[in-house]
Design a protein around this nucleic acid. Structure first.
Length: 215
DNA sequence: CCAAAGATCGTCT
DNA sequence: GACGATCTTTGGA
């Protein structure tokens, strides 16, 4: 994959500063499309370009873990500084990674749902135990991307401009269009369940979900 | 391609 | 004690 890598490893020392996260959550979600998430772990470096996200706009958002403004041990990172990692375990098995966002004092976040792998393909395959899967399937879905990237609760609350887990600036290509849909698996969120707060790169092979939700 | 079902455990009631 | 911001496997169209 090295010869197909769209960005050079030497660019991995660039990253968004804290000021980048000072924007409304839906705009931040939009801006995160095309940026590259990098994890430097003891096992090696993995990186992927963000192609699918969901905005969670608490405390009003009935789909958010911060709905109602209730602080808990799990969601406390959402109440903290923007640009840090909010990571949680879902269904007892899979970690999910979010970027903390929101106006001052409001617990909001952007869930990263899919990456286009750009570095560390073999390490991703090893972590997933998927030696022959299509490359675009390696980080397709919020749980899978965390497994492939080696992201766990050990990184809970980490700032995203450090040396371990960070974001490298990146843009969408001129021919890449943004699509939107309702968010996945939050039918319980009532009037918030249908809002178009899931954003993705249209027709990108690494985006998760059924085909009608990728066009 | 799509739908159904099972796995599995921290969190909150 | 119930339920997930999920994924894999299985089986059918």
């Amino acid at each position: 994959m090295l010869n197909k890598c769209p960005i050079d490893v030497s660019s991995f020392d660039r990253r968004y500063p804290p000021a980048f996260f000072e924007q409304p959550t839906l705009e931040l979600a939009r801006q995160l499309l095309g940026t590259v998430l990098v994890h430097r772990s003891s096992e090696g470096i993995t990186a992927g370009r963000i192609v699918e996200v969901e905005a969670y706009c608490g405390p009003e958002d009935k789909g958010s873990h911060s709905y109602g403004g209730r602080l808990s041990e799990r969601n406390r990172a959402m109440f903290g500084p923007k640009g840090h990692a909010y990571i949680y375990l879902i269904y007892g098995m899979y970690w999910c990674f979010n970027v903390v966002s929101g106006p001052p004092g409001l617990p909001q976040a952007v869930l990263v749902r899919a990456l286009d792998p750009v570095f560390g393909e073999q390490l991703m395959r090893s972590r997933l135990n998927a030696p022959h899967a299509p490359i675009h399937s390696l980080c397709r879905g919020p749980g899978k991307l965390c497994k492939a990237m080696g992201i766990t609760g050990a990184l809970y609350g980490e700032p995203l401009w450090g040396d371990t887990l960070f974001l490298v600036p990146g843009e969408l290509a001129p021919d890449e269009e943004i699509g939107s849909s309702h968010r996945i698996n939050i039918a319980y969120a009532q009037e918030y369940a249908h809002l178009p707060w899931r954003l993705y790169v249209r027709n990108h092979p690494a985006v998760s979900g059924p085909s009608r939700l990728r066009r």
